[in-house]
Each structure stands twice: as structure tokens, then as C-alpha cells.
């Protein structure tokens, strides 16, 4: 779509910066704006580490009572927890603010986005960049490293590749969930809270082995909101275990394709939402 503009306008603009450079400039400006408030930035990072700590406290408390949960040991659940919260933290860092869409609509900021020659979603994503959430990612990675040392994994090149790619694929899946559920905000003024049920709820649920959940919850969060692919299923493959509930083993290696499909669905939902917005106005 953007390319038609170059054709219409002619020579002057095609030699300018690329679309990527435009987004790059937007992201850099956000980072610079945050770094300028150094004191509160440090406090915010500490608060994010604390969020991770409190989340992990639940796992810790549970294992002071029992030695296995849904058939998994403390170290194994910690591995799942580390993978899930690292992926969620990364997604939250990059796109976490999209659930504030109703705020952008109310203040007219979305209209301002629509008046610029870039995609509205692209501008929304690059309009904020919560570097403080690095604190949470760092804590998750710490848990992950300790858990990896504690569990018994039969390392193969395929498993190493799986371990390295899982947080990335997981972050892509979570960001698709963020975008798709945030688009609810095009219809509902209080869309943020609805979106949180799936984003924050997805983070909570994916930090535990899926064997603890009932079949409706398990299927919903595997096939509709695909957060099972973020941590639980890849962890099975790393540990060399089968799903007690009978999920085929190849699903454990499918986070990449699932992430792709999740984003296609998310973009479709977003486009439908944006059409609804420009259709009804406000």
C-alpha cells in the first residue's frame, strides 16, 4: 500500500529513508525518553524484578507442601516457569502497551496515527517501549539457568536449538495474543481488562505444567490461545517426556509455525477491529 505513494508523488521521496528507518527512529526516541528519567527507571526495574519474584514465590510455596505437581518436580516446573515468563516478559517489553488501545482511542492519538503514512499498528507498537520490563526478563532467565542446571536433560543439537528458539517463539506467540485481544478495545471502552484475562492469564497459566488443568482450559489455551507452545510443550521435548494427556510429541517442536499462524490471526483480528473503528467512528 505504501508503495503506491511513491508512484504518485514521484522522484522526491523515494530516495529518503526506508520504512524500517522510520520505525527505528520512533523506537530510538522512546528509549531516549525513558533513559532521561534515570532514578525512577531504576526503581521501575527493581519493581519488575519483584513481580517475577512474587510470581515465583507461588511455585516455591507450592513445593514446600509437595514434591511433585501434576507429575513434575520443582526443578522441572521452574524450567517451565522460566521459559514462560521470559517469553511473556519479552512480549510485554515490546508490545505490552497495546492493551491500552482504548486510551489511544479516547485521546485521539489513534487518529493522529491514521494521519501518518505508516501502519497504525506499527505506530502503536513503536509508540512505547517499556525497557523497565527488562528487569522481569532478567529474573526469568536467572530462574531458567538455575532450573536447567538442576534438571536432567539428554542434550542433543536439536534440543539446544529448541531451548534457544523457544523464548523467541514464545515471545512472538504472546505478542500475537496481546495484539489480537487488545483489538477488543476497538469495540469496548474497557477492553484492556478483557485483554488482560488472556495476556496476564496466559502468562500465569503457561508458567505451570498443563497436566494440572481441566480439559476445557487445556484445549482452550492450546488451540485457541496457543500458550501451551510457549513453555509446557517445548519443556516436554527438552525433558524427553510424553504428554500424560496424549498430545502428540511433534507438537512440542511446533512453536515456530504456531507463532506464525498466531500472528496471521492477530493481524486479521486487528484489521477487522480497525475497520470497525473507521466504520463507526467515535
Amino acid at each position: 500500500m505504501a508503495d503506491t505513494a511513491d508512484r504518485v508523488v514521484g522522484g522526491l521521496r523515494t530516495d529518503g529513508p526506508t520504512v524500517l528507518a522510520a520505525y527505528g527512529a520512533l523506537v530510538r526516541s522512546r528509549v531516549a525518553a525513558q533513559a532521561s528519567y534515570r532514578t525512577s527507571f531504576v526503581v521501575d526495574i527493581a519493581a519488575q524484578v519483584l513481580i517475577g519474584l512474587v510470581e515465583f514465590a507461588e511455585v516455591y510455596v507450592v513445593f514446600t507442601q509437595v514434591s511433585d505437581l501434576g507429575g513434575f518436580s520443582f526443578a522441572e516446573v521452574s524450567l517451565i516457569f522460566g521459559l514462560a515468563t521470559a517469553a511473556f516478559g519479552l512480549a510485554d517489553l515490546v508490545v505490552g502497551h497495546v492493551d491500552r488501545l482504548p486510551f489511544y482511542v479516547r485521546t485521539g492519538q489513534l487518529d493522529a496515527f491514521l494521519l501518518r503514512p505508516l501502519s497504525a499498528l506499527g505506530q502503536l507498537v513503536t509508540s512505547d517501549f517499556s525497557l523497565r520490563r527488562l528487569g522481569r526478563v532478567a529474573f526469568s532467565l536467572l530462574v531458567l539457568v538455575i532450573a536447567l542446571a538442576a534438571v536432567d536433560i539428554n542434550w542433543t543439537p536439536a534440543r539446544v536449538a529448541l531451548l534457544l528458539s523457544t523464548p523467541i517463539a514464545g515471545a512472538i506467540i504472546f505478542s500475537a495474543v496481546f495484539v489480537a485481544t487488545s483489538a477488543v478495545g476497538f469495540w469496548l471502552v474497557d477492553g484492556t481488562e478483557f485483554a488482560n484475562a488472556f495476556t496476564y492469564g496466559g502468562n500465569y497459566l503457561s508458567s505451570f505444567p498443563f497436566t494440572v488443568f481441566g480439559s476445557i482450559v487445556r484445549r482452550t489455551f492450546t488451540f485457541v490461545i496457543p500458550v501451551a507452545f510457549v513453555a509446557y510443550l517445548p519443556a516436554l521435548a527438552l525433558l524427553g517426556r510424553d504428554d500424560r494427556m496424549g498430545m502428540p510429541a511433534w507438537l512440542s517442536w511446533s512453536a515456530g509455525p504456531v507463532a506464525l499462524v498466531a500472528w496471521l490471526v492477530a493481524l486479521l483480528v486487528w484489521r477487522t477491529g480497525l475497520r470497525h473503528y473507521t466504520g463507526t467512528g467515535s
Binding site: L188, D190, G191, E193, F194, N196, A197, G201, F213
Partner: peptide
């Protein structure tokens, strides 16, 4: 929205 979120989180917490 609040009821919905609280219910979803309740199901997850209770399952664990």
C-alpha cells in the same frame, strides 16, 4: 470485564 478476568484467574489458581 472485571468479573470475567477474576473468573479466569480463579479457574487457573484453583486448578493449581
Amino acid at each position: 470485564a472485571g468479573v470475567f478476568v477474576n473468573t479466569v484467574f480463579g479457574v487457573i489458581k484453583l486448578s493449581i
